[in-house]
């Protein structure tokens, strides 16, 4: 039921909403702008907004001084690696729970969720010691394993809610139409499950990319992803705003873009299907 809205009202709301949207986004915008400034312009007072000497030097410097792309690559490996590994483990589980549910399925799901609620400090010390003794500290493989485990409940849950939406009648229709098991999987099930799997993948890459407890505590240099690398700018000698901004912009840009694509799935994934 679309209702007539007075243009005046609409313009007023547009003004307020855009102002608030701009304010919320401003720190990101400011970081982006600062990344193209010289260090002098970056701390100029009064601050300069658009009129300054735009330069790409910071991006260049960040890379040449500190192997930025090495850390970027670590982030990619860790977030994709843990997500793919998680999917591999979770898809059969979610599949079984969605399509041959038993009385206990719900309890298993709830229990899985409850493991996600354990605060990381409860596990920090043993994991740290195990990693130290096993030579896994500052290794990508170690982080992949930990991030897989912490996100596994979310992956199972998201997949479960998506798989549950595939109607049973469609599978039956395929069988009436004479599809063999393999053909049913190839032509009907896979195409219908792929969107859900893709959304799950997307959200979990975002979560893993931004994970900043285990990455900070378990890596120092070699395997350090961007979270740890950026944190090294917190020391006073790292107070170069323009370079910090350049490093930050590169760290957040890919995930920001992914994130905008996955808004809807985000709500579902993070509320475990409680809000759709």
């Amino acid at each position: 039921m679309a209702r007539k809205v007075s243009t005046q009202r609409k313009v007023a709301f547009t003004g307020i909403a855009w102002t608030i949207g701009f304010l919320m986004f401003f720190p990101i915008l400011w970081t982006f702008l600062t990344s193209f400034k010289s260090e002098g312009d970056a701390i100029a007072s009064p601050p300069v907004f658009l009129v300054f000497n735009w330069t790409l030097e910071n991006y260049h410097e960040v890379q040449s001084r500190s192997d930025y792309f090495g850390h970027f690559w670590n982030s990619v490996v860790i977030s994709f690696g843990s997500t793919l590994l998680g999917l591999l483990i979770a898809i059969p589980a979610a599949w079984a729970m969605a399509f041959s549910p038993t009385k206990r399925t719900k309890d298993v799901l709830m229990w899985m969720l409850s493991t996600k609620m354990m605060p990381p400090v409860g596990a920090l010390i043993p994991i740290y010691l195990i990693f130290r003794d096993g030579g896994l500290l500052d290794s990508r493989i170690g982080l992949v394993v930990v991030l897989t485990l912490i996100n596994l409940p979310i992956i199972v849950w998201m997949l479960y809610t998506y798989f549950k939406e595939i109607p049973g009648e469609i599978l039956e229709a395929a069988r009436m139409d004479g599809a063999s098991l393999m053909k049913e999987v190839i032509y009907v099930l896979t195409p219908m499950a792929v969107p859900g799997i893709a959304s799950t993948l997307l959200l979990n890459i975002i979560l893993a990319w931004n994970e900043a407890f285990w990455t900070l505590n378990l890596t120092t240099s070699n395997a350090a992803p961007l979270t740890t690398f950026i944190a090294s700018y917190s020391s006073p000698e790292g107070l170069f705003y323009a370079k910090l901004s350049a490093a930050s912009t590169m760290a957040i840009a890919p995930i920001l873009i992914l994130g905008w694509f996955s808004q809807k799935q985000l709500v579902r994934g993070l509320t475990f299907g409680a809000v759709k």
């Binding site: 109607p167 039956e172 599809a179």
Partner: peptide, 16 residues
Amino acid sequence: PAKRGLAMVFQSYALY
């Protein structure tokens, strides 16, 4: 079902 040579129209249509 596939071998029985029957066709079915479902309540939800069950279109792919």
